[in-house]
């Protein structure tokens, strides 16, 4: 075991995994509580497009 995991590796991996999962599930559960119409709906409707643009454009400019 000691050869396979460095000192601090197990708590680091557990903490990082817990944070990442909390963000993924937390976003979904928060959105469930938002109103299904009005400004909050428009915000969520537009979000996929704006996230994808933000993911793509800086990388495309480097390429």
């Amino acid at each position: 075991m000691s050869n396979l995991f460095h000192q601090g590796a197990i708590p680091s991996i557990l903490l990082a995994s817990a944070i990442t999962y909390a963000l993924r599930l937390g976003g979904l559960l928060l959105a469930d509580r938002l109103p299904k119409s009005g400004p909050a709906r428009r915000f969520l409707d537009c979000l996929p497009g704006t996230i994808l643009v933000s993911l793509t454009v800086p990388g495309a400019l480097h390429a």
């Binding site: 460095h6 000192q7 601090g8 680091s12 903490l15 990082a16 944070i19 959105a31």
Partner: peptide, 30 residues
Amino acid sequence: WSAPLPVVAMGLAVLIVNMRYLLIGASLQP
């Protein structure tokens, strides 16, 4: 990654890098 690993600093870095998953999660509501 160099032993002993900086557990808290790594956690903070992961929080910053993965913050987008909060929005990605929200956008999957439908």
